[in-house]
Simulated assay, not measured.
Amino acid sequence: MFDWNDLKYFLAVAHHHSTLAAGRALQVNQSTVQRRLAELERRLGRPLVQRHPTGYRLTEFGEALLPYAQSVAQAVAALEQQLESAQLEAVGVIRVTCPEPLVYRITQTTLLDRFHARYPGLRVEFVMSDKYLDLMKGEADVALRSGDTVDNELVGRKIGDSLWAVYASRKYIERCGQPDGIEALGQHDLVGFDETMANHRAAQWLRDVAPHGRVVARNNSVLGLLYSVKAGVGIAPLPTAIADAEPELVRVLGPIPELARIWRILTRADLRHTPRVSAFFDFMIEEIDTLRPIITG
């Protein structure tokens, strides 16, 4: 029906009986006060003030509306005070677990700068791991995680998609060629995860499609796979978000549908609405448009 912000111009004129004094109180120029007040009157369809030689006076309609406008102003002031109190309570460290490559990509943006500007009392501490840390045991407060989550004690929101494809370096392709299909992976040098990451979906997929493939190097992290593929050691499935950003790598297969998963932000149900975690969780949800290219590519 109308812009709530225009009520403060009405209240200022009602209090000061002058658009010039109202502008000074609101730290805007007089013409802004007059324009916004006129717009409010246009929206309401009736005049709120009348100009007299001694200043502005409220119309009968303006007098009737005044206590309601004052109630709105009091409610807004109470809301602002509550928000300020919540920010003051939001202090301490938030431990966020996620894979190492994601930390690098996040820190290349202004995402954390904006968070710290809003919540100067909070500090983000990354706990980097390609394995799932146990939030229920307190190993971290928040997880940025792709894959299946079956823990009913965790709450979360989808923030994007995790896509994987198979990559090789240009030097490897010059030396050995590239597979013309998934069934040809068994004829190439492969880079895979070691036994500590045997349950990772990429490791399981590679075992399924190339059970007799030549695994020439093993790593315990996605970043290790990336470095090995960049060095020309062999080919491997990698997240598109990080591999597509490497100019020396070529996507030779995929994306692979079997490796696609959802990225989520997760935390414990009992932590979700604490000031510290709630501040970070809600901020990241607000920034989904910034997060999606970081995690999906």
Rank of each mutant, 00 (worst) to 15 (best):
M1R: 14
F2Y: 14
F2L: 13
D3H: 15
D3C: 14
N5G: 14
V13T: 12
H17S: 13
L20K: 15
L20N: 13
A21F: 13
A22L: 14
A25Q: 15
L26P: 15
Q27S: 15
Q30T: 12
T32G: 08
R36N: 14
A38G: 07
E41Y: 00
R42S: 14
R42E: 14
G45K: 10
P47W: 03
L48N: 04
G55S: 10
T59C: 09
T59W: 03
E60F: 08
L65R: 03
A69I: 10
Q70D: 06
Q70P: 12
S71A: 11
V72T: 12
L79K: 10
Q82P: 00
Q82I: 09
L83E: 13
S85V: 13
P101I: 02
I106H: 08
I106M: 12
T109E: 08
L112G: 12
L112H: 11
R114P: 04
Y119T: 07
V124W: 06
E125Y: 09
D130Y: 06
D130A: 03
D134N: 13
K137Q: 07
A140I: 04
V142N: 05
R145L: 10
S146L: 02
D148A: 08
T149A: 06
E153H: 11
I159V: 14
G160K: 01
D161S: 09
D161E: 05
L163W: 05
Y167C: 07
R175K: 13
R175Y: 03
G177Y: 06
L185I: 09
H188M: 04
H188P: 06
F193C: 05
D194R: 02
T196I: 10
R201S: 12
R201I: 10
A202Y: 02
D208G: 03
V209D: 00
G213V: 09
L223W: 09
G234E: 07
I235H: 01
P237Y: 05
A245I: 08
A245D: 13
E246I: 04
E246D: 01
V250W: 03
V250L: 04
R251W: 06
V252S: 00
L253D: 00
I256V: 13
T274A: 11
T274R: 12
P275I: 14
P275F: 13
R276I: 11
V277W: 00
S278Q: 15
F281G: 05
E286M: 11
T290V: 09
R292M: 11
